[in-house]
Design a protein around this nucleic acid. Structure first.
Lengths: 256, 256
DNA sequence: CCACATGATGTTACAAATTAACAAAAATAT
DNA sequence: ATATTTTTGTTAATTTGTAACATCATGTGG
């Protein structure tokens, strides 16, 4: 009895909505009245809103709303979202991953759902976002909180990383040039990134087109230190090609 | 034409939902088909979901959901706020303080403003809240994030505390009884609290009346380990007196 | 100024979904 | 084993939604 309801819940959570007619087909032999009552219970539990002919997931609805809202209000969100979506393809179940701080990787954190993962991050807000995924184990590196970029750093954060192994690191970069490599604006933030890249088997940098050609005071990696750069269409083919040639030849990655 | 729609939007935003029948009464003379079409437009704009016989505000729905999800946070808010306000009197400029995780201490975090402080915390959301205070230095202990109470714990968190000195620790407790002392529901969370209390010169426990008489599996402190218990008026004078006699005699604290 | 297009609104009949009320079956307790 | 509660199924009545077309207002170019 309870099992059917949680199956329905799960389906709605995944697909965002469900029609009663679909449920009738799937649960052949169960009367539509019963399925209706199931949906009503789900509504009472607060996960779902009943619509004509079915039900919709509330969290799904609000995510859609958020996306609509942020698309209008802030800049480059579409690009950032697209970048995050590409990066998501490199998130593999069962692995240990690192997620950096920054708006672009924050989108990535939002996209991760229902995956058994070991997530280490330097950003409290990324950690809180990931906590919504019921299956992930989340580690937050300790340290001093930088008010500007809301990332953690410092000696304790560095020490923390000593005991962590990372399959794939998703790193954000505030600037990039072929001369200076990947750069950021805070020294201790750079230290963290550097150490993470050193420890990770594979490093993926997420960076929208506005970051290209910018130099910030601290270099945390050369192009050849990373395996993949994910960016958007605002970057010329020429630069993409050059990036492609410059990354570490680990055989696992290509430029997107 | 547009005016009617925004009136409807406003009404839904305020009340959370609206029935078509209500709209028909309110907009006397407008056909139900038109009102239906209006709601459809609102749905397309992403603010609203259509339900049988009306529409509901998405933001309202997700708020309800959040509240259901963290029932704790919506209960006893007045008491918790009052407790936090009392605790604020013990926050002294220039000091090193520890803020625990939990809804009550979260209120305290919100109340701290424009004070030069060294704040250490085990809660990412407390850290983010404190980051709004431009003058505080914020340290977040690293570690594993507990999804239920959004607090950090584990061996790294414990090690982090080794290098931190604390003047005053503001600790939350999920339960208290004279027999078992202060208790919480998670072992590693208890470890953190225990260590903090050990290191702090002064420990203040924040706890609303609902926690009294409750025993949770892990004891992290005896009454004599702490200097002050701040609670609300829902606690009998008798208990208050007994608490007052039981706390550590450091000469700095009294029961509120 | 008129004929025409466009979009919003109203009307009707019809289709679909929902509810209510009660019966049957299954699970649980006594 | 029997009583009681809970879950499920069935039916008919009610409510809600849709489609299709008619009407009205508004505005535009000739």
């Amino acid at each position: 009895m309870n099992e059917r309801i949680s199956l329905i819940r799960q389906h709605i959570q995944e697909k965002g909505e469900v029609k009663l007619s679909e449920l009738e087909v799937f649960f052949e032999g169960v009367s539509s009245m019963t399925l209706r009552r199931d949906l009503k219970k789900l509504e009472e539990s607060g996960d779902v809103v009943l619509t004509r002919g079915g039900a919709k997931s509330i969290s799904h609805l609000s995510r859609i709303k958020e996306e609509l809202y942020s698309k209008r209000s802030s800049e480059n969100t579409a690009e950032k979202y697209a970048i995050a979506k590409k990066a998501l393809e490199y998130v593999e179940e069962g692995r240990s991953i690192f997620i950096d701080s920054g708006t672009t990787v924050m989108y990535l954190a939002r996209l991760i759902e229902n995956q058994k993962l070991f997530i280490t991050t330097s950003a409290p807000n990324v950690a809180l976002e990931c906590a919504k995924d019921q299956n992930a184990v989340i580690n937050l590196i300790g340290g001093n909180l930088n008010r500007d970029n809301l990332s953690l750093s410092g000696i304790t954060a560095l020490n923390f990383l000593d005991n962590i192994n990372i399959d794939t690191a998703f790193i954000a970069s505030s600037g990039f040039s072929f001369k200076n490599g990947f750069t950021c604006g805070d020294y201790s933030e750079g230290e963290i990134k550097k150490k993470v890249i050193e420890k990770a088997s594979r490093t993926i940098v997420l960076m929208d087109n506005t970051k290209f050609g910018k130099n910030l005071p601290f270099t945390f990696a050369k192009l050849s230190d990373v395996d993949l750069v994910i960016t958007d269409d605002g970057v010329s083919e020429e630069i993409k090609k050059k990036l492609c040639q410059g990354v570490r030849k680990s055989g696992m990655a290509k430029i997107n």
